[in-house]
């Protein structure tokens, strides 16, 4: 059982390593979207400082969504997903390994890059660690929730549908994530937001592997 989970995980990581350029797309997309806002809103530091948490979080949502088609799409076309479904292990656990690999490749870079971009927006030093923790708790939620959307949209007509499904479900993560950082900005404790984000993570950890596995099964029928 553990061998199989490890095999799924390592294969995705190894494959991504051999195709590094593909995965850097998400990362640079995040940076570019964040950099667009000062150009659109104007370089006024006071304004930018206020909207920075929201911008960073919205950009993280969009970047994570952009990476979703990679979660299952190639496995779906090359037959790997059939093999995963027919493996003796529960499909939900195998899917969870894929989600973890996906998060390491697309979510973790955003977590590490977030505080650096926060500096660009003149965020106060005490906001940066909170931004880091909120992204650390929040981006796994995005990968987990996104996996459901990625599974449901396998082989469908039209490529934008996944955004319609996933973005509304992302909203609590956005609210608690940016809320934590904003809370520090107005001088209150971010603990409540971060705990709620943790609660969302726990719920997603339970619901998402089951729902994604069900979605994958439906797609293969």
């Amino acid at each position: 059982m553990r061998d199989a989970l490890r095999a799924v995980f390592l294969r995705d990581i190894l494959q991504a390593w051999r195709r590094r350029a593909d995965w850097l797309t998400t990362f640079f997309f995040f940076i570019i979207v964040v950099s667009l806002f000062p150009l659109g809103v104007g370089p006024e530091p006071a304004i930018l400082r206020v909207i920075a948490p929201g911008i960073l979080w919205v950009a993280a949502l969009l970047a994570s969504m952009l990476a979703l088609p990679r979660m299952f799409a190639s496995d779906y076309t090359d037959g790997t997903l059939e093999q995963l479904t027919l493996a003796p292990q529960p499909l939900s656990l195998l899917v969870l390994s894929k989600i973890v690999a996906h998060w390491l490749l697309t979510g973790l870079p955003l977590v590490l890059m977030g505080p650096l971009l926060g500096l660009q927006f003149g965020m106060a030093p005490d906001m940066l660690p909170v931004l880091f923790y909120s992204l650390l708790l929040g981006t796994p939620c995005l990968s987990l929730i996104g996996a459901i959307g990625a599974g449901l949209t396998l082989g469908v007509r039209g490529s934008g549908v996944v955004a319609l499904l996933v973005l509304p479900l992302y909203i609590p993560v956005l609210i608690f994530g940016s809320g934590a950082v904003e809370a520090v900005g107005v001088g209150t404790a971010p603990g409540g937001h971060l705990s709620l984000l943790g609660a969302v993570l726990m719920i997603s950890l339970v619901v998402s592997p089951l729902a994604s596995a069900a979605a994958v099964r439906v797609a293969l029928e």
């Binding site: 199989a4 190894l14 037959g79 093999q83 027919l86 493996a87 003796p88 292990q89």
Partner: peptide
């Protein structure tokens, strides 16, 4: 059960042996 469909379930970027090894491990 061992099922082999139309698609070979192989990853282009991995070597033959890596592919086979992970396929075996996934099959338990």
């Amino acid at each position: 059960l061992l099922y082999l469909g139309h698609a070979n379930a192989l990853k282009d970027d991995l070597t033959l042996e890596e592919n086979l090894r992970s396929a075996m491990q996934i099959a338990g």
